[in-house]
Design a protein around this nucleic acid. Structure first.
Lengths: 223, 223
DNA sequence: TACTTTTTGTTGTATAAACAACAGAAATGT
DNA sequence: ACATTTCTGTTGTTTATACAACAAAAAGTA
């Protein structure tokens, strides 16, 4: 059984609670009926159709945001990890059903906050709530920008362009030409929305041409 | 010259100012140095690389959110219209450059609010500011959900599936099997990320097969 | 260590889409 | 009303990708 206290420092430093002092944070965690929950690999945290009224903060592990298309083809919208939030936009849009699944990729620990209850109780009056909503606004902004970047990735017309766009963006995020990606080949293909084998083929072509080098999940962009 | 007063009622009823009384709204407009600006067709309101510190609210007209890909191919991320906001996520993420263009599709009127100035002045203290940030959080949530839906649209593997997914989503939004879309063919193709002529061909095939009927921009889904 | 399962890379073939070029329709301007 | 421009639909050809089937490598298990 995981205890909240084990993660206290991490929680305190997460973007959700940025700018709060200990007192405010502790008050908030109580007000929100904060609890920690553990999931195993391949468990579903959120399902399409769920109504979300909790804030989910990943404390440990990796989670796929997925969507199953009409004929069961899987689309990976995003890969989230430590300090990321799940389905925050459905907390903001009340009574809107989730249009995504959140599926664990590894053993995962999540902090869950009962958003609804607290906001109706304190009427947004307390300082900590003001800080929180400001933070949530900023977090959602970032998510938004990343979704736009993902749209850019999948909107390239060839597999080659999708790969190069994706890898360049990753290099930029990591501030280095050499970096590790979190996707395995199948997941990357589902993220870029292409066939895995065709993508593998294109990857080795890019390597042969000297544009990139890779070994398993370590990639390097060559000038 | 357009005057703010001409749009006062519309502004009052927009999602940005939802839940405010006249006094709060007027105070806010003043505090934000609200002004109205007119754009002609094909003008660029926001450019990639801009730092955004204003809130933009469309009062009249239509605006494309676009991105130019590496070799000048155009991607349409979204088509916005009356009561929608432009680039709100870049207001939330300070000092992040816009990664999109906002381009008018017709003559357009926009309300501009100097977000930065006001928030630094009033320190989030006033009631109206609390209402505002709550509203912005909800608006951003909706945008987020729509971006995910767009990802679903463009992630279909065939033109046919993209069209059917898009048209079904539109029908659902309009609560009717018969509806009008705002895109012309080229824009729709850029939105779905396919070749226009191939898309035209697929549309008429769908019509011949009896799945849809259309005339110009009016579409009907047949069971 | 040997065995099984999962992941990744390779190839050939069928298929769908991009592209180019054009014609007709619709909209716009004079 | 006419000319001009923009938009839409159609077709043939080229090209890239999905798909299937398999081999090799890596990871996991007994």
């Amino acid at each position: 059984m995981e205890r909240l206290e084990n993660y206290y420092n991490q929680i305190k430093n997460s973007p959700v609670f940025f700018g709060m002092n200990d007192e405010e944070l502790k008050g908030l965690l109580e007000c929100f009926n904060a609890r920690v929950r553990k999931y195993e690999k391949d468990e579903i945290i959120i399902r399409q159709g769920d109504i979300i009224s909790n804030i989910y903060l990943i404390l440990k592990g990796d989670v796929n945001i997925e969507k199953d298309s009409y004929w069961g083809r899987r689309i990976i919208i995003a890969r989230l990890s430590k300090n990321d939030n799940l389905a925050l936009s459905f907390v903001g849009s009340k009574n809107v059903e989730s249009n995504i699944d959140a599926v664990t990729v590894s053993d995962t620990v999540v902090l869950i906050l009962g958003y609804e209850k607290c906001t109706s109780m304190c009427q947004n009056a307390c300082t900590r709530h003001k800080i929180l909503i400001n933070n949530l606004f900023q977090i959602l902004s970032k998510e938004n920008i990343e979704l736009i970047q993902k749209i850019e990735n999948v909107s390239q017309k060839t597999i080659r362009d999708k790969l190069l766009t994706y890898l360049s963006n990753e290099a930029q995020k990591k501030h280095s030409n050499s970096f590790e990606i979190k996707f395995n080949r199948q997941d990357l293909a589902d993220y870029l929305n292409v066939d895995r084998s065709a993508m593998s083929f294109e990857l080795s072509k890019l390597q042969k041409e000297g544009l990139i080098e890779y070994n398993k999940n370590k990639f390097e962009l060559r000038s």
